[in-house]
């Protein structure tokens, strides 16, 4: 069974039953807290790190806002811990001040927009960079920044390779979109599933490593490497056939971005 769990803890009893009945389970992109499941995902801690790196490169000091995803989703905290690897020292030294940090119910972009508006209001617009954990919420953040005339001036991160977000990277309103090619994830999961059919021990699947979960379990996992897309490597998503040039370059002024001409 390949399962994409909305809530990695709530699904445990169902997964345990499947495994007891000899059905191997693959936790697809979202963690399931069962030691016998095989966890296949892009390395989410790394995604968070890549998001923060790109923003940190653009803006190394000042007031940061952090827009996190759903509290019940382990990814929200993995991403946050990856971000901390990059900005943690600067936060400790006081070079970076976190002026707003919120979880967002259901990763809802509209809620992220409202939260961002309130953070901007509370700080009289003195926000220098925004670490948004995904593209949808980055869209909400950028809508809030646009209303204050700040879009493009404040670096914003995201992930997923959403077409709208890649367009924003080309337009310059979003700094980075960490792209996790879903096709690679699907292919890996499919191959792993075929191997599990022959041998149900997940640790015997090719390319696995042990993974310590926040719940204290150790399970086998395959962590794929994501690709941070910035203005400089937009070519990658075009070459991969992930997005058409028309979608990527909609509204981009001529001569601004090399791939858009």
């Amino acid at each position: 069974m390949i399962i994409l769990a909305q809530d990695g803890t709530a699904i445990k009893p169902a997964v345990a039953k499947a495994i007891q009945n000899g059905v191997p389970v693959i936790a697809y992109d979202r963690l399931i807290e069962d030691p016998k499941a095989l966890y296949i995902t892009f390395d989410n801690v790394l995604v968070g790190k890549l998001e923060a790196q790109a923003v940190f490169k653009a803006k190394g000091t000042g007031n940061f806002a952090i827009i996190k995803g759903n509290k019940a989703d382990a990814n929200a905290d993995f991403l946050r811990s990856g971000m901390d690897q990059v900005i943690g020292d600067a936060v400790k030294s006081g070079a970076i001040k976190i002026v707003g940090e919120t979880y967002t119910d259901n990763w809802d972009p509209a809620k992220a927009q409202t939260n961002m508006e309130q953070i901007l209001t509370a700080n009289q617009n003195k926000v220098d960079a925004v670490l948004s954990e995904n593209d949808g919420m980055a869209g909400g953040v950028i809508a809030a920044l646009t209303a204050q005339g700040l879009a493009g001036k404040v670096p914003v991160s995201g992930q997923d390779g959403d077409k709208a977000a890649l367009n924003r990277v080309a337009l310059g309103t979003q700094t980075v979109d960490v792209w996790k090619d879903a096709r690679l994830l699907g292919k890996t999961a499919g191959e792993a599933a075929m191997q599990l059919c022959n041998n149900s021990d997940p640790s015997k699947v090719k390319g696995t490593a042990a993974f310590k979960t926040p719940g204290g379990n150790s399970l086998s996992s395959i962590l794929l490497t994501p690709n941070p897309i910035t203005k400089d490597n937009l070519k990658d998503v075009l070459d991969a056939g992930w997005i058409t040039k028309a979608d990527l370059c909609q509204g981009v002024a001529a001569g601004k971005v090399s791939v858009c001409g």
Partner: peptide, 8 residues
């Protein structure tokens, strides 16, 4: 307001 339509 969001300048986008999203699934949720």
């Amino acid at each position: 307001r969001l300048n986008a339509a999203v699934t949720n």
